[in-house]
Design a protein around this nucleic acid. Sequence first.
DNA 1: AATAAATTTTAGACAAATCTAAAATAAATT
DNA 2: AATTTATTTTAGATTTGTCTAAAATTTATT
Lengths: 219, 219
Amino acid sequence: MTLTYTEEDYIKGIYHLQQTYNTVSTNQLASLLEATPASITDMLKKLKAKKLLNYEKYKGFHLTAEGKKLSVNIVRRHRLWEYFLVEKLQFGWDEVHEVAEELEHITSKKLVEKLDAFLGHPRFDPHGDPIPDNNGKITPHIQLNLIDLPLNTPAEICSVGSQSSSLLELLNHKHINIGTRVEVKRRFGFDRSLEIKLKNQPAITLSQQLAQALFVKTI
Amino acid sequence: MTLTYTEEDYIKGIYHLQQTYNTVSTNQLASLLEATPASITDMLKKLKAKKLLNYEKYKGFHLTAEGKKLSVNIVRRHRLWEYFLVEKLQFGWDEVHEVAEELEHITSKKLVEKLDAFLGHPRFDPHGDPIPDNNGKITPHIQLNLIDLPLNTPAEICSVGSQSSSLLELLNHKHINIGTRVEVKRRFGFDRSLEIKLKNQPAITLSQQLAQALFVKTI
DNA sequence: AATAAATTTTAGACAAATCTAAAATAAATT
DNA sequence: AATTTATTTTAGATTTGTCTAAAATTTATT
């Protein structure tokens, strides 16, 4: 099954929306891909004809097993390249997305497997998201929202809930990164803000909004 | 100036043909790109409109300074990726071309510069072809056919005249690679074969056909 | 339940890149 | 020099992916 770059973008978009919604709507996908609903409908027909999509008009849609398998593989390539860009080429983790969007479309199996081996078969990308393995298997991530982390429990930032540049800017300012060690010291009920401590640093305050955008795993 | 992948393929093709022919013809390019002459003509008009091409109909064509600059940059990206694939991902040098054809279209300046630095600013790709630097400057290659190398002159294999897998197989068998040090010890007029020595190894014989497929530079 | 609002689809147009077949031009041959 | 042959261009069609505007359908509201 050979897909155009555009078809790949569509099924990847649907895959991501399906992580949150059982069934995806035309407008949701239009908004994610920044295209008009009319364009989405056109492509849905093509993907249905290729048996990658279960779709009845006006009824929403979701990927078939085959569609999902292909999507997972695109996600695999995307995250492997992100890992490469950060670990080998010294990109910042907030700079890699656009370039990985292009690299992910190169489908050579040999390339992907050799890249994976070169990188040491990493299981999480620089944002903390799991990298599907060659069979599409995804290491489940036992993530806790920072807002739910018990007091005085050492943990490590392992993923962020959004990739907006405003969030990344704020995290850079506060010197918080994937891998940063944190402990929650206090909770303030009034505004649900947290006082946290980074290793060897004075305590700082995180707003509810920020804490909810951060995921941790205990260590 | 943003080019589509297809436009990039066209100007890269023209660039390569210009290395041999002063002015390029529609049929030459059609044959190189495996497209019909009609398609070539269509694209020539677009490239002329973008001022990348000097073209008068029925009169052949060649790149403008701007077109050449862009082409050299594509060649730079292609050869950097080939170097990466061979040196880092352990591809064989006969396997890299197709994948590099895809990777070369990713234009991110940051990516290319960081890749170049990661690779240690290599000046020649795995086939011995020069990699243009960031300003488009190409290290001229003073290559000598192995058959013309004077006796007892230390030299280094720097390029091969063909990328056929049968040649690669033979070179692998004889443990000859890009970078291998050689000296010609004897020449046999009867069949124009050579006796050569690789560093710390007993002398071996190369046929005329093989020697002519190898290029060296003295060291 | 009828109407208004939102969502989704269709119809028709357009740009990019390609093709085939026919016409125009240039080059080669008699 | 006239004619044949080869090359190149044009004309018109096709595919992919996109759009706008209008129509169809579903959902929400009075």
